[in-house]
């Protein structure tokens, strides 16, 4: 298994919103990648954006400017 570190995890209500986040971050060169939602956050399925904790401010600003609707922002060790 991969060594666990502290991560920023952003969840969304829909897969479409998660894909919108990926498209936006790719276009802007922002940090992160899509991962399955960790069990510690939700027992349901779905996609989440995983990035380094220090990226939070930039990602929040990006989501606001691009009108991407997120569900929650978490910090967890995964």
């Amino acid at each position: 298994m991969i060594a666990k570190t502290l991560k920023l995890i952003i969840t969304f209500h829909t897969t479409t919103e998660a894909m919108s986040m990926e498209a936006c971050c790719r276009a802007e060169g922002a940090d992160g990648r899509l991962i399955p939602v960790p069990r510690s956050i939700s027992a349901g399925c779905g996609l989440a954006w995983c990035a380094a904790p220090q990226s939070e401010a930039r990602l929040r600003a990006l989501m606001e400017s691009r009108q991407i609707v997120f569900q929650d922002i978490h910090r967890c060790i995964i």
Binding site: H13, T14, T15, T16, E17, A43, G44, C45, G46, L47
Partner: peptide
């Protein structure tokens, strides 16, 4: 693909 344990289908577009 989301909210598996909800009895209702998600209402987000």
């Amino acid at each position: 693909g989301v909210k598996t344990y909800s009895k209702a289908h998600p209402d987000d577009m």
